[in-house]
Amino acid sequence: MPTGLKGRNLLEPMDFSVDEMECLFRLADRVIEAPEQYADRCRGRLLATLFYEPSTRTRFSFEAAMLRLGGQVIGFSEPNSSSVAKGESLSDTVRTVACYADLAVIRHPKEGAPRVAALATDMPVINAGDGGHQHPTQTLTDLLTIRRERGGLGGLNIGVCGDLRFGRTVHSLIKALSRYPGMRFALISPEELMIPEYVRKEVLQKGGIPFDEVRMLQDVMPGLDALYMTRVQKERFFNEEDYIRLKDSYILDAEKMRLARPDMMVLHPLPRVNEIAVEVDADPRALYFKQARNGMFVRMALIMALLGVER
């Protein structure tokens, strides 16, 4: 069954309805069950990856997804190797790339850059992370992982811990999950890194979604269905002193895990620095590497859906 997403952009999680997301997740489930059936779906199609900021897993994940679908990839992984170094505007770069490629994935340090790209072209544009703003394909990964572990979304108490101010994956995750019934959030962060006002007001308060803003991870651990850990991102700080002061604020280790439910999911968008101790990796509740694998499958589903080749 087609997802109805052909030709669309994914700039932020709300661009797709809950039903459209569900179609995408079902497609991803089918890809996970029988990836060989999709090995030729994108033959003759070209994906452009425009990465104006460093990335390992997101870029590899998109490239692996396209290659596993039989398609090909062009692009750059740092802007100095492209005409951006000559001062070309983002709009012009995207217009040019649209002459060659069928679909573009953009990561950019400036917030809202993928929207500018989408306005410049009819080619579908996927936001692969824009500054500290949004990261909707990470959210697809997160939701697919929760859905596959729990059999559905909704009715969950989710703890989100770390850098909630600049952590773009957090903003996208809260926005996306806020549309499911019975959600509750525990927002665990230092005061300096609390969630942005637009998430608090426009998403949580406007949606009437219960949430608590707390400082200590230990205080909320026993009640959580899932804990989403994030990295305190050095590149989001204007000053290094603040970074050094706050970077070790929240570290998940085996001792804290003893406070958690036996089925609490531990999620992380990766890369991790030291916010999850390596000893937690062996805990069956640690799902972050499973998440990374799911990321490739859900991106395969997304690419097929936007190109209209999912059938």
């Binding site: 983002l90 709009s91 950019h108 400036k110 917030e111 809202g112 850059a113 929207r115 824009d130 500290g132």
Partner: peptide
């Protein structure tokens, strides 16, 4: 006025 916003670097939008 957000220095991280794309409007701060992309001219003409």
């Amino acid at each position: 006025r957000n220095p991280r916003c794309v409007t701060s670097s992309e001219s003409g939008i």
